[in-house]
Design a protein around this nucleic acid. Structure first.
Lengths: 350, 350
DNA sequence: CTGTTAGCGCATTCAT
DNA sequence: ATGAATGCGCTAACAG
């Protein structure tokens, strides 16, 4: 019965050893290549392993050796499409390298985050990846031993001792101002939110200011539309917001708006569309992120591309490297971002 | 030094046993509640466990007992927002019940799927969840032992021996025709794709036909716009498609269009917008799924809600139950779906 | 109610 | 180049 084969007891190295009349240790060595074994023996063992459909028991292996081949990923929200892309990059590399990916979603909640880390600690994961989240990390830091390999993706933390993978948001935003300035825009507004403990938004904002200076444009507080509260549903909130800020935009003769994220930009665009304002003819808008919606809905959004999948892949590779060296490392790696020029910006440099 | 505490050797039940002058087995029993232990002993043990910051070693526990508390989830594509919501539901329940979630994304590729299942088998997961994917399952089936607990979410397979969680797409679509008919629509078209091995699209389509019959509407092949190929990027492809089908829509006096998915509906709407066709004044459109974009972009889409998060939660609960009983079960569970009435449908029943 | 013993499957000494 | 013995941390089986 072929069915029974599936139900029969799992093959272990002992089974292989018996059949071959050798010791389990030799089988182990032959299979993992840790120690020198005669070529023929290796071949015999490997062949039989395939024939018997031997599968190493990860759990037993993990208990014995310190190598687990498990990586824990903690993200604030799996549902965020931005993170989903990052995670798929991570997943891609890990599965290729025979690592197992364990996931935990925290909804920005510290207790949940703590619980997740503890759980992973019990599982004895080889390393951690954090995707997104706030800049506070102390509650997590105290749960990790000094040299646990950790990589943070798009999560900047104050006084970090870990590897952080991000992009230079400040520079990116400055470049965006350059770009708009080149297109003839002189009154460029900014729409976003700020919060002392959120590093990335602050970086973006300061990049915007820097860009104004660099291009000799005057900074005008009236056209910096910054909320203090973290918006939960960016798209919706900023769609409403469009109506609210439009009078100011008219009054101050704003020709272009830089939004802090794509969701904000898309929300604004949709809001303006309701108001019958033509994008980009009457107002140019840019975003940041290059999420898939930004290349779906009309007008296609001019935005800053963040290499999400590549970030994930890269993080996985760096982490595996750290694991092989058994340590954490303090470093910040900036991936390249580029401006994606699409239809939401008008050239008014006539 | 508090720092050293983190790095010091892990506490085991043996440590606790020694300090309390009892046996490790008793500690184990006190902690897991498997066997009867005196109340005071339990309290003493638990207290010391907390004080020493004892953390059970999942790996060791898993090796010894057959309970792993690990669940493997395989999905065709993490990046699909629909699946992301389902997964977040799964994740929510599992983390509450102290299960660990391991994830694998297959990009619809059979080999990758096989590899993922094998990997999970080596990890000895307690059960499997499959989210989405094609209806072929033979390649996976042969890798699973007869009573491995398995739950499929939104993946219908032919001759299944497993628990499937889905909604009654046929009925849902029929109801959508009812709804449109009530609103006075008499010429209702259908836009989607079909493929012999994809059960869900077939169900939807037959629900549409059923609805026509039920409402005494004539079936007209000309206004059934069905692609044979599985579209990779639904939104974009159907945005283009709008232009292609519009002449027929005019000619046949179609007043409403039922799209097979939200992405298709949104793509069509965006395409029609380009053509300056007013939705819903000139043409009503409905979708299926109630993905977040359907409630973001104007006009808000009338669609069929699929309880994605609930599906995930429910699947996790069912799976945990199957695990506790150590078996798989052949059953199909239908979750309730409802029509979400929004702005993309006009009432023309005057 | 609790202790003793054994062993899950594997990789790692230490032998030879 | 290979085998025998040991133990990772925990829980199941069997005693008391």
């Amino acid at each position: 019965m072929d069915k029974n084969k599936r139900d029969s007891k799992k093959i272990t190295i002992l089974d292989i050893a018996k059949r071959l009349g050798i010791s389990p240790a030799t089988v182990s060595n032959a299979l993992t290549g840790e120690r020198y074994v005669k070529k023929e023996t290796i071949e015999k063992v490997k062949k039989l392993a395939v024939d018997l459909d031997y599968r190493p028991n990860f759990i037993a292996r993990a208990l014995r050796s310190k190598k687990r081949n498990i990586i824990g990923l903690i993200t604030s929200n799996i549902r965020n499409p931005f993170y989903a892309e990052v995670i798929s990059g991570v997943e891609d590399i890990l599965s290729k390298k025979d690592y197992i990916l364990v996931i935990n979603s925290t909804s920005f909640n510290k207790d949940t985050e703590v619980k997740g880390v503890k759980q992973f600690n019990n599982l004895l994961v080889d390393g951690f990846i954090f995707v997104g989240g706030l800049s506070d990390f102390t509650h997590i830091h105290q749960l990790l031993s000094m040299d646990t390999p950790v990589v943070l993706i798009n999560r900047r933390i104050t006084g970090s001792k870990y590897t952080e993978i991000t992009i230079d948001y400040k520079k990116a935003m400055t470049k965006m101002v350059d770009f708009l300035s080149d297109k003839g825009h002189k009154v460029i507004g900014y729409v976003g939110w700020k919060n002392d403990s959120a590093i990335i938004p602050i970086e973006k904002y300061s990049g915007y200011l820097e860009g104004l200076k660099k291009n000799n444009l005057t900074e005008n507080k009236n056209i910096i539309f910054s909320k203090d509260k973290i918006p939960i549903r960016e798209f919706r909130e900023y769609r409403e917001y469009a109506r609210e800020i439009y009078p100011v935009i008219l009054k101050e003769k704003v020709t272009a708006l830089i939004a802090q994220t794509d969701s904000i930009a898309l929300g604004l665009m949709d809001g303006f569309r309701e108001l019958k304002i033509k994008i980009p003819e009457e107002l140019s808008i840019t975003g940041c992120g290059n999420i898939s919606q930004s290349r779906s809905f009309y007008p296609l959004l001019t935005t800053i591309n963040i290499p999400k999948i590549r970030m994930g892949k890269f993080a996985a590779e760096v982490l595996i490297d750290l694991i092989s060296r058994g340590k954490s490392k303090k470093q910040t790696i900036y991936l390249k971002s580029t401006i994606i020029k699409r239809a939401s910006v008008a050239d008014i440099s006539y």
